[in-house]
Nucleic acid binder design. Structure first.
Lengths: 185, 185
DNA sequence: ACAGCCATGTAACTTGTTACATGATTTT
DNA sequence: AAAATCATGTAACAAGTTACATGGCTGT
């Protein structure tokens, strides 16, 4: 819901049209996360469907502007005020997933997986170090990535220590049940 | 694609049926991320559609087991071997998004947003500190969350310093264009 | 026989993404 | 007039989630 909420909160400043929202999004987020034009429009459609915004008559230039409804304003305020739930963002932690699987699957190359991940994080950190931020917003976004990558490296070390004592294990034998193999197809 | 890839990599151990996959997923990931039964089946359908798995005849208990195709095995190996792209996981960094927006939107309560986020992270850390891990996998997953939360707190401090010198700004005036307000509807 | 779990599925939905189509306006 | 850009949209898809339906098996 990030994009949806971001567009809503920009609209608290006043009515905007589609590409204007895309532009403001870029200006106000350090340009870190490119937003596809198409997504602005689909998101606006969905916001209108949900009663959070309302389309105004086309302006002098034929652009369609949207304004917040009371509902939409409330949603925007709620979003800004509430903290981002740790990893409740619907995104599974793919890295932890991959590492625990690599540790428990016989035949998987745990050391190799860890080495690859460490190397990727190290390279990403190096690339970040060489980046010149344009402005303060950029600095904040870069700092976010840097701290996340550093944490990833720390965690990899810790995980390495913990997993040193873990052995992979095979599939658990499935419980036997009645032998009623329905001859379906 | 986390779930898809995880199921594929479990299937490298041999054919499994739906709920068996769900069980192995739990056993092998620290139980951190609950996997809904329904998603196992929809994912298996899509994997079959994509030619990554193949359904076997029902076994003695009438359960439908799936096995990897050559394609599926290759996909699983590729996934395990390749590092997780930093934030390329499709998940936007909602926290950085929210903070930069709060910093640039006139009328937003930046200090309040930061305080709320800091408090939420602190509380989550405290909850983690009081958790007793069952096994090593659990410890690895908990460590992942802990390091991520610590990094979040560090970043919040840094962002606070950087954003102290940033002032919110209004909407950029949209460029004027021809006055051809097509009287469409 | 009945309750409850095991196992499989389906339909509808969400956010996000891609590729494409269309016109209008500005620039050359 | 042609080319590039602005602006809006549509259609289709992906991954994930939810709620629900169904039937077989198990234990009492």
């Amino acid at each position: 819901m990030s994009v949806r909420s971001a567009l809503l909160s920009i609209l608290t400043l006043g009515p905007c049209y589609g590409l204007q929202l895309a532009g403001e999004f870029e200006r106000r987020t350090g340009g870190a996360e490119p937003l596809r034009d198409a997504q602005v429009y689909t998101t606006l459609d969905r916001l209108e469907r949900d009663g959070a915004v309302r389309a105004l008559a086309k302006d002098d230039s034929g652009r369609v502007r949207y304004e917040l409804t009371r509902e939409g304003r409330r949603e925007a305020e709620r979003w800004l005020a509430s903290p981002v739930a740790a990893e409740a963002s619907g995104a599974r932690d793919e890295l932890a997933l991959k590492l625990t699987l690599a540790a428990t699957l016989p035949g998987a190359d745990l050391a190799g997986v860890m080495a690859a991940q460490r190397e990727a994080a190290r390279a990403a950190l190096e690339a970040l170090a060489g980046a010149e931020p344009d402005d303060a917003l950029d600095r904040v976004v870069l700092a976010r990535r840097r701290t996340a990558l550093e944490a990833e490296l720390d965690w990899l070390d810790e995980a390495s220590r913990i997993l040193a004592h873990v052995s992979p294990f095979p599939l658990a034998p499935p419980p036997k049940r009645g032998r009623k193999a329905r001859h379906a197809e």
